[in-house]
Structure formats: C-alpha cells, structure tokens
Design a protein around this nucleic acid. Sequence first.
RNA 1: GGAGGGGUGGCAGAGCGGUUGAAUGCGGUGGUCUCGAAAACCAUUGUGCGUCUUAUUGGCGUACCGGGAGUUCGAAUCUCCCCCCCUCCGCCA
Length: 424
Amino acid sequence: MLDLKLIREDTDGVRAALVRRGPDAADGLDRVIALDARRRELLPELEGLRAEQNDANSRIRSAANADVREREIAAMRGVAAKAKALEQEFGEVELELQGALAPLPNLPDPSAAPGPEDELVREVGVPPELGFTPRDHLELAGERIDMDRAANLSGTRFAYLKGDLVMLELALVRWVLEKLRDAGFEPVIPPVLVRERALYGTGFLPDTEQQIYRLPDDDLYLVGTSEVALASLHDSEIIDGERLPLRYAGFSPCFRREAGAAGKDTRGMIRVHQFDKVEMFSFVAPEQSVAEHERILAIEEQILGELELPYRVVNIAVTDLGNSAAKKYDCEAWIPSQGRYRELTSCSNTTDYQARRLNIRVRAEKRTQPLHTLNGTAVAVGRTIVALLENGQRADGGIDLPSCLELYGAPKALTPDLRGIDNK
RNA sequence: GGAGGGGUGGCAGAGCGGUUGAAUGCGGUGGUCUCGAAAACCAUUGUGCGUCUUAUUGGCGUACCGGGAGUUCGAAUCUCCCCCCCUCCGCCA
C-alpha cells in the first residue's frame, strides 16, 4: 500500500517512480487521486453533521421538559437522515479508494536495476571443471527422487524424496536454523493455511492470485512462502522502537500452482508445486531497512559459500519486481546440467508497503509510523539439493557433499545410483 | 461435529440506550519527599482521520469498547451476520 499523503503531496514523484516499473504501472494513479479528493470533500461535511448531532444530543439529554425534548428530537430527524445518506456515499468512495490503491505496486528504490536486464552484482566461486558430461540431479539421485510415482499420486511437478536425501534435507534445515538463530533470527514454524488478509497484507493479493492454492470450502489459502505468515506475526501492532529489529526464521512447506509456467523447467525439481524452505523475515525501523537488506544478502551469500556452491548475485530489474518489493537481489547458483546460473535464493526490501497494509507501526520519539519489512530465502531445500547434487558429482556418479552438513547428520558423500545412471 | 459461556483501553475488570474515550485497580511516564532508593502522595497516561497554528511533545472537530450491517434524535449498551476465545460431549495425529 502506498502512502496516500505522499501521493497527494508529490504526485509527480510517485508517478515517475511507478513508471520505472513499466509504462502502465501508474495507470491507477489518477483514479486514486480523484477518489481521494472526493473523500476529502465529503469528510468535513459529514463530520460537521456529526458535530451538530453531538451538540443536539447533549441538549436532549438535559432537556428541561418533555416538550422541549420532543421539539429537539423532531428537529434532529432531518439531520440524522442527511448524515446517513452522506455516510453511505462516503463509505462507497472510501471502498473504491481502497480498491484503487491496493493494486498499486511499491515505489522502486532508486538503486533497483533499471532493466530490462537484471544487473550483475558479483560472481563468487567458479563452476566446477568436471571433465565429463554432467548428469542432471534426477540421474544422479536415481530412486532417491521419484517424480514418476509422485506424478501418479499428485500430478506433474511433485516429488517423492527418499533415503539419504531426506537426511540431507533435515541436515540442511537444522544447520541453517542454528546459523540464523545465532544471527538473531528466532526460529518459527508457522501455519501454512492462512486467511485472505495475510496474502493481501503481504501484497500477494491482488497480484498473484493465479499462483496461489485456495481452499474454497474453508476460505483458506496455502502459502507460497512463510513470509506470508511471518509478516502477519505482528499484524496491527505498534512496536516500541527499542524492540526493533525483530528477526524471524520461518521453516515451512511452500505451495505454488505454477500456472503460466507451462513448459518451463518441466524436468526435475527446479520448479515444483511443493517444497520446503527456511525464510528470513525482519521488522526494522524505516532508516534501517537498506542496511538490513545488505545484511540478509550477506547471510544468503555466506550460506551458499559454506555449501561450496558457485553463485552470482544479481540486482533484479525494476520491471521484474513483485508488487511489494522496492528492491530485490537474487542469488543464483551454477547448475552444471543446464550450464547456467539458476535462482536459489532471493531477498527483498519491501519498505513500508506490507507494514502499511498490515498496519504494523513503530513508535519512536513519541511518533508512530509504518515500519519496514524485509524477507529473504535462507535455504529453498529442493533447489539447494539440486545444486548440491549436480555440483558435487563425480565421474562415477557419486556425489561429494559439503563438510558443513556432516555434524547435522548428512552423509559425507552419496553413492552412485546405478539404476538411475543406466536409465539415462 | 453437538451444547453452552464470553470478547471493553498495555494488563485486570466495571458499565448493558443519553455529560462514557469509557469507573476502579495494576502497569508506564513526569513530579514532590529522600544523601540515594523504596514506600507514600500529586499529576499524566491510546490510535486513526480532518482542520488550524504549517517549529512543534500543540489547539479544535470527528471516529474507534472483536469486525460488518441495522434500529434510534442518540448505541460499548438493543437486533442480525461474520471472526475469535473458553467449558463440556464426540472424534483424532
């Protein structure tokens, strides 16, 4: 949600910022301005009538006798009717205004990449010299990733994960959660079924409805990321500035319909309907969000580094930003079988956009204002396993795994799955 | 799923048609007292919107007693719908 006051006072600035996202990104702006003006016309009128009513009420209350009282009441009937009609109109205008304001995306940060291409920030590590044709993660995993039977069960883009890979997942999650806990992020396992308000509040609605699973019988939605639930953790609260920053690490399954992704990444676990993810989420004072964004990015990079994955960081083009993000970095890991980098983690500064929708404020120096929220992937388990398998592969089909996970119960290495390799 | 009881300010808890933004207690803040602290006493203590003074921790108006709609000159108080919590029964990882 954009700040109405800002739209009113710096219309041109807001329009220019929105237009960076695309030529039609500011399309709803004029309607918002018109509705806001109408609202501001109606409001004093309505409040005047209410003042009149309040006045009359105290006279009626203390009326000397029944006659005086009756006369006052009779006189107020007309005022009451007028107020009611005005209230009705005001309510309609306000509703329309909210409806027009809600779809407007966040103002991009000036340093967000101008587009149309993402901007390379840095490249870290070098893609491994394998000396043989790389196998993809399905070949390497063999029986340990069974998407055929999963398709039988649930359709395309689902997977059974088995054996050592289950242990690998749990080790990854445990490792990352401990790391984040030590960095001040409180571990959270949130609900993954949520009401509409949570998705609206985080800006996924009304923007990405085609991506979201909905349970119409219960009026609930399956979240595509624990960000949704973590943001709502402080719904409608006023938080003392001294308590910020508040940092959480959510661990949850994530559900995405991937409608409109037909034909994209049809093989393997890169793009599936269900995956587990550890997500960072921070509530910070407005002046802290830029620094927090860099901090979250640094943690993401540290994780990829310790997992010994070659990766690069890109500053996402404004034209590709989701509605709530003012700026976003992606960390892309090298995927040998594809010979290119693929998004593994991502972090966004959503500034006050979600906070305003969820009415989350900070109180400092006796002032209250919307705070800033940020989110970032710590580990998206499915894609991380893909990257680990493919980058750690040896000529014999075995896979070396990074040593950081050993303490957490992951095997040192995975044995070749001969069946998987024969079938290739 | 069935039956019943509730949702009031940071918390506890009154009010159940008219000086109620809301008693009282606790907590918080400022002060008096004290060498200092505690205790005691005094004062103060919400948020949004509009407007004025555009320096304001400010003045005025208005709204907010889970959310929405309604009845009424007037609703925290009455009616309806929704949400949430609690108790008992049933079911269940």
